[in-house]
Amino acid sequence: MKSLPILVFALAALAQWAAPLSQIWTHEQVLAKGTLVRLKCRAPDPYDPLRGRFLAVWPEQTDAPVPDGAKIDRGSQVFFTLTPGADGLSTITSISTTPPGTGIWLRARAGYVYDKKVNIEWPFERFYINEKLAPEADKWFAQNIRGDQGIVAEVRVLNGRAVLADLSLDGKSFREILKERVK
């Protein structure tokens, strides 16, 4: 048995484990130690051929002003500072090209830049749901999307990284609401 193919195979097998494990480690850290941020959002219901049904999570805030003197290109890395309001919902209050020293901040990619505003490409966009619950999620979504309360994305943020932990309506978990409706 030749050693080079075995070595290459071992590296490939390790990489197949390392890629998902590194994701798991990073996201578990964020979920365990991250600050909870709540963002008002919309959530239509598309389908991914490989990962199943999900709600596309679109926070309502879609752009933020470019600070004076800052040069931000489309696709470049930017840092958003999030500040919670009186209603507990957070909004982006500033953008920088270097990590802010304080506060809750998110690392993301800049979208289109126009009129001294930068379009935000949020680092989370999907909330996967059980296929059995998906039709009920559609109905729930249609009934609640126009309400004043709106759907809230609960995101854990740690060192600029974000993990979408849950969706909620009126403080109640989306999954719990759906399970109650399906019963």
Partner: peptide, 27 residues
Amino acid sequence: SQIYNLGGEWPDFLFWWMLLSLPLVWV
């Protein structure tokens, strides 16, 4: 990526999938 609600379109997913599969072609 489903468990942690990771974003990214399916072609991004495809990109990493094919890179991780490439060494199997070699060996």
